[in-house]
Design a binder for these strands. Structure first.
Lengths: 155, 155
DNA sequence: TTTCCTTGGGAACGCCGATGCGCATGGGAG
DNA sequence: CTCCCATGCGCATCGGCGTTCCCAAGGAAA
């Protein structure tokens, strides 16, 4: 992991389908050397894979909800049961156990408020061990530094 | 946007660098038809781009913080000032204005607690208009459905 | 100094992807 | 009912890309 690897990862993060030749030129390497580095990064776990950025709104999903959930227990089996149930719910795209009150934070996508209400009623409300559910809706997403910029330093 | 388009988006979301021929076979189309559909999806805004999945931990980032910030004002100019300042901070990878108390929710990456403490002191603490800052740390990330699965249904 | 190991560049080969063409299907107008 | 046009697929082509050899250069260790 040197500066060139970082540059490759940045470039791939920005456009994963860019030709290797373009990335190579960008970081000042030949195609072959660049290919080898990419393969090495994949093998070493620095590069986990490649994904597509989807236009949520364009696909009919206008609601992003950030949900805080508190459980009535902290016993590991109860947590595991909760997590297994959460993993089954369509629309839940992120879920984390966080410090500070031993609760969970989810990110949920829904088509509209009605859709979210359905999700809430049919799934969130039936999760095992839940004491409180607190939903916030994203009113505006603020553009930030990209993940790669955060990891490898600014701009 | 029919079922085939959805399958293409799912496939690209799972592995954006897969050869078009592989995607085509997966969704039951010829290469050419698949290429044309992908181009159409890009042009129509359903497909915004392609990115790399990075191994945070492997890259030396072990802290994910979810931070709630409350402002003392709701005047649009103050919000804009806050947002402009937030966008400059290295480590902030998500930021959203949310309903319910008119506050912001950020996701922040840091190498370790010391690194986060530095971020908090040097940047978060100096954001304009802030009344309260509340940090939670991700103890465990629960695997959920992928974004594409959430948007196009199950599996 | 010699050897080994790492890492880059160059060339070749096979494969991939973009485009043009012809054809089938389906909906609308006459 | 028939004709026509629009839509969207598959096939074939060709230029370009990616992978994989091999060799050379530089640095570390013996």
């Amino acid at each position: 992991m040197d500066r060139i690897d970082a540059a490759i990862l940045k470039s791939l993060a920005a456009d994963a389908r860019a030709p290797v030749s373009a990335i190579a030129a960008e970081v000042g390497l030949s195609q072959s050397a660049c290919t080898r580095r990419i393969q090495a990064l994949e093998a070493s776990g620095h590069l986990l894979g490649y994904g597509a950025r989807l236009g949520h709104r364009r696909l009919g999903y206008r609601i992003t909800a950030l949900v805080d959930i508190t459980l009535g227990t902290q016993v590991e089996e109860d947590l595991a049961r909760f997590e297994a149930a959460v993993a089954q719910i369509d629309g839940v795209v992120e879920c984390a156990l966080v410090s500070g009150g031993q609760d969970y934070r989810l990110k949920i996508l829904a088509r509209d408020l009605d859709d979210y209400e359905r999700l809430h009623r049919e799934h969130l409300g039936r999760l095992p061990g839940v004491v409180t559910i607190n939903s916030s809706f994203v009113l505006r997403a603020i553009p930030t530094r990209s993940e790669a910029e955060a990891l490898f330093g600014g701009r």
